[in-house]
Design a binder for these strands. Structure first.
Length: 819
RNA sequence: GCCCGGAUGGCGGAAUCGGCAGACGCGGAGGCCUCAAAAGCCUUUACUCGAAAGGGUGUGUGGGUUCAAGUCCCACUCCGGGCACCA
């Protein structure tokens, strides 16, 4: 489409000016009120796609809007530049991930600049920058010293496709790798962990304080999974001085325990298995432990193959009865004590198992009349439960817990679903873990002055299942920093989520050296006032970053910094093409560049703002091109209007001009409200309505006031400035050359006097149906409204029966009810 | 299975506190301008009966509350997402 101005030239001019003049640089000692806006820093997969455009358009709009509202706005950017795709691409191309990554960063940077997004580029952070790595490693060592990082052997998730272990958070519900989609295997390996569970309670509690989408908060709460219960002993029937320890959240149902179950990996299993059951137990254990987590847990309906009797018995402490001990794959070794008491009457899993193995079911909570399910998990009076009989669940829980504490070595306990964070990765393109293994001194931290530990360039990245760095003799072999003896370097790298767990802190103070950041500088900006990103990070990144910040505060690296990093979170919807998410891995990207060349960044930005609520997904369809052109058409009309094409402007001011000013000020109020509510689609709609009204008014043959036109023009450009920054800046400069630029203007404020309506349309209904619309004074009284409504010809014509009641809501509505 | 979120014209969506359903835009139809086209501008556009005036119907389905329901309550259908042996 032919544009009334040279879009490319105008946009390039302003992009250069913002960058060259550092318009959006901000200093840490700025005295204005502060506002920290941050979009999740992107993984540099290449040039931007529409998902990026959407994300960074919202971010940039907030930056410019808050600046016009008088804040010192911190708007940094960076790149999450370690990660598997770059390594895989480099392997394929026989190149080095750094070359690949640096090229991708240049492309993505160019896209962001062409979008018109503005940043304080002095604060740019790149995860693979050796300077940044140095601080990432310092933090690791600080965690190590504080006991927050440790090495342990554990059953871990191994992804064959990625040739590395994964964190629990990176394994999807169906047991596949979130990145490669491969089925994850279980392997027993020695790995590095971060003690995130130490913060489980605080991570859970603080969720309440966050202004985040409710569903993200719910996901975090579910992931942490707190449950209160009692841990106690089930004495062995064969030797009551010894016991099997179990955890339960339902001690009140103790009289209903009819068997106990061990996890296949339970340490007492061998001892409790009698010779005649050994074979059956062994085959179950072998199958359970070699299977992947999914295979183990998804054998729907196949309960028959899932458990085995050990041949041993334990004593139920409540009634002294001897109950059989089973082993079953549905009990997890890694949660609680790895063993449970089973109450088939009040637990669905136990019920299913008991039915399959023909074990007794004893009801201890009275189910309501008509309950026809299996296990009853609701409330009710206890029965068959000795001293608990008659008590409801809450009271019985307390009494039963007291009993267990006194009589069965019981301990009230809180368990969490959350596990420690496995941070080792057997891959090359990540930040090396800075420790050395010495035969005499054991694990020795690399001294601070030797940081960063940087991987050499000549490493073979072939995926042999071990870390690529382990194959590089020059890197692997070193000397112990403590005793000088020959030693071996750690060859694993850190999970890239460690990089993204603190980058926003470095961005708040990228100027300090020798420390990751200066806490007093960072404290000035944190927490991030508005964090913007995708819902896909609802658990992983957001939980890890919360943990990092709390830990950094506690160990002194971030003293005085807010304990929660992201006060407000906005998760924007994703772009879908033919129903699937737009992403590089799916190969269905739509690049913004062609649009930059035609409708311009402003047109594309406006489209993303206008197409729907920011939180909703966007379907990229055949209609989309039309909507984008519609947005560009709107901008063209603004351009032509501002240039006074075909206008009839006069010096005098009349009633139509006053009405125009009222319309303008109502628009200011509407747009401002929409901006605050993240309702950008309606903000754009309000500006479109304003333009329609102005066009009509300013072309009226009667003539429109020049003074009012000027007010409309300058105000409209201000309102448009965060949305379509290039064109607004250009028009403002052309028409108001002696003033500071549009983005330096204050955000318009509506004049309250102009928001008052003198007259309004009053609806008159008869029995709820609209029969007339009357133009009435806004301050009409009840009586006057009633008179006016009943006096209306068309209302009387619609009556048909005597009036029995009149509902009057002045000045909006009258509803006449007939008999 | 459990927990959230959603369903409004041909399409994206609006309606912020229970008070004019469909703002704004896309698409469609008609017109102006033009030798013609593009661009631009104007009119129109929920469905339906009607020549018109005007009437009827209408926010996933079925009930309910209310003078009044897209909005509140109950039951359900479908779609999207999360969790799913965590004892």
């Amino acid at each position: 489409m032919a544009r009334p101005f040279d879009v490319k030239a105008v946009e390039a001019k302003w992009q250069a000016r913002w960058r060259d003049e550092g318009t959006y640089n901000v200093d840490n000692d700025d005295r204005r009120d502060r506002y920290y806006v941050l979009c999740m820093y992107p993984y540099p997969s290449g040039a931007a796609h529409q998902g990026h455009v959407r994300n960074y358009t919202f971010g940039d709009l907030v930056v410019r809007y808050k600046t016009m509202r008088g804040y010192a706005v911190l708007s940094p950017i960076g790149f999450d530049s370690f990660g598997l795709p770059a390594e895989n691409a480099a392997i394929k191309a026989g190149s080095h991930p750094r070359l690949f990554t640096d090229a991708r960063i240049r492309e993505l940077t160019s896209s962001l600049v062409r979008l018109g997004a503005v940043y304080d580029w002095r604060r740019e952070v790149q995860s693979h920058d050796p300077q940044y790595m140095k601080y990432s490693q310092m933090i690791f060592l600080a965690f190590l010293e504080a006991g927050l990082a440790y090495r342990a052997t554990a059953p871990v998730n191994w992804c064959p496709g990625c040739a590395t272990v994964l964190a629990n958070e990176q394994v999807l519900a169906d047991g596949t790798c979130e990145r490669s989609g491969d089925l994850v295997q279980r392997r027993e390996l020695e790995q590095w962990f971060f003690r995130i569970t130490q913060y489980a309670e605080e991570l859970l509690k603080d969720v309440d304080e966050l202004e985040w989408p409710e569903r993200v908060k719910t996901m975090q709460r579910n992931w942490i999974g707190r449950s209160e219960g009692v841990e106690f002993d089930l004495a062995l029937a064969s030797d009551p001085s010894r016991a099997l320890r179990v955890f339960t959240t339902r001690p009140d149902t103790g009289f209903g325990v009819t068997y106990a179950v061990l996890a296949p990996e339970h340490p007492l299993l061998g001892e409790l298995t009698t010779p005649e059951h050994a074979e059956e137990v062994a085959s179950l254990v072998e199958r359970a432990l070699s299977a992947s987590e999914v295979e183990r847990t998804s054998s729907e309906g196949g309960l028959a193959k899932r458990g085995a009797f050990t041949g041993s018995y334990v004593l139920n402490p409540f009634n002294g009865r001897s109950v059989p001990v089973y082993v079953a794959d549905y009990v997890l070794g890694s949660y609680g004590t790895g063993a449970v008491m089973a109450v088939p009457a009040e637990d669905e899993r136990d019920y299913d198992f008991a039915r399959t193995y023909d074990l007794p079911i004893v009801r201890t909570v009275q189910a309501p009349d008509g309950f026809d399910g299996g296990a009853y998990t609701g409330d009710g009076p206890h029965v068959n439960s000795g001293f608990l009989d008659g008590l409801d669940v809450v009271a019985a829980k307390a009494a039963a817990a007291d009993f267990l504490v006194e009589r069965a070595g019981g301990l009230r306990k809180v368990n969490y679903r959350l596990r420690d964070w496995l941070v080792s990765r057997q891959r090359f393109w990540g930040c090396p873990i800075p420790v050395v293994y010495c035969p005499t001194d054991g694990i020795v931290p690399v001294p601070l002055e030797q940081l960063p530990v940087v991987a050499p360039d000549d490493v073979s990245m072939d995926q042999t299942g071990q870390s690529p760095l382990a194959t590089h003799a020059g890197f692997l072999h070193t000397s112990c920093p403590r005793c000088g003896a020959p030693a071996r370097r750690e060859t694993d790298t850190m999970d890239t989520f460690t990089d993204s767990s603190w980058y926003f802190l470095r961005m708040a103070d990228p100027f300090s050296s020798g420390v990751p950041f200066d806490p007093t500088q960072v404290a000035k900006w944190m927490p991030v006032d508005q964090y913007i990103g995708g819902i896909e990070h609802a658990i992983l990144h957001l939980l890890y970053a919360r943990f990092y910040v709390k830990a950094l505060v506690d160990i002194g690296l971030a003293s005085g910094v807010a304990r929660e990093p992201f006060a407000r979170l906005f998760t924007q919807g994703m772009i879908r093409l033919h129903g699937t998410k737009m992403s590089k891995s799916k190969g269905n990207l739509i690049a913004p560049e062609p649009y930059f060349d035609t409708v311009g960044a402003d047109g594309l930005r406006l489209f993303h703002l206008f197409v729907g609520p920011p939180a909703d997904d966007v379907d990229w369809t055949d209609q989309t091109e039309g909507v984008i052109e519609g947005c560009a058409r709107f901008l063209d009309r603004v351009w032509r209007l501002c240039s006074e094409n075909g206008l009839h402007l006069v010096e005098r001011e009349g009633p139509a001009d006053y009405a125009m000013r009222q319309e303008l000020h109502r628009t200011i109020a509407k747009v401002t409200d929409s901006m605050e509510r993240w309702s950008y689609n309606t903000a754009v709609a309000a500006l479109m309505e304003l333009l329609n009204a102005v066009s009509k008014w300013a072309r009226d043959p009667q003539g429109a006031s020049r003074v009012v036109f000027d007010e409309v023009r300058r105000t409209m450009l201000c309102l448009l400035a965060p949305m379509a920054p290039h064109m607004s800046a250009e028009l403002f400069e052309v028409h108001y050359p002696s003033e500071p630029g549009v983005h330096a203007q204050s955000w318009p404020r509506p004049d309250p006097a102009l928001l008052v309506r003198e007259s309004v349309t009053m609806v008159v209904q008869v029995n709820g149906k609209v029969r007339a619309r009357l133009e009435v004074l806004a301050d009409i009284t009840q009586e006057q409204a009633r008179e006016a409504a009943l006096g209306e010809e068309r209302v009387r014509a619609a009556l048909g029966a005597p009036v029995t009641r009149v509902v009057v809501v002045p000045p909006r509505l009258v509803n006449v009810i007939t008999g």
